[in-house]
Amino acid sequence: MTKVTMTINGKSVAGDVGGNTLLSSFLRDDLRLTGTHIGCDTSQCGACVVHVNGRPVKSCTMFAAEAEGAEVSTIEGQANADGSLNVIQQAFQDHHGLQCGFCTPGMVMTAAALLKENPKPTVTEVREHLEGNICRCTGYHNIVKAIMAASGQDVSAIAAE
């Protein structure tokens, strides 16, 4: 077992992990941060995306020990300080960008990373950026629309409701 310490959603945490403990397992099983989801076993679905030192990472592709000293943020740390939904979360609700909710944490974290790098993406850029996140419920229409809206762009031309 290895002792690891890292900052998660602004709080310092420590734990003992095996050499093969994935970051996703450390978050879910040890810290009980179960908002990070596991939807596949080939690093394809993106339900486990978190930010490590500001960059989006599929937490099932990284060992917990590799995050030693890192700043990690997860879906549980995304809301505003007063507990209200942040701009991206609110856009997902306003534009019905989620149904069953299982892929949603990864979608929100991936969208946040996109908008940080590219604050006014085109629709094509949004769709390409979501290549690593699978949703089975929405047909992506409202996810793309929500991200465009979260970027402050006019989405009225994208079909209503």
């Binding site: 941060l33 908002g35 879906i75 549980e76 995304q78 939904l85 979360q89 989620l98 949603t104």
Partner: peptide
């Protein structure tokens, strides 16, 4: 949506 967007949904494996 609020619980799903904030990571506090409760799925079986949670």
């Amino acid at each position: 949506d609020v619980r799903f967007l904030t990571g506090v949904g409760q799925y079986t494996d949670d």
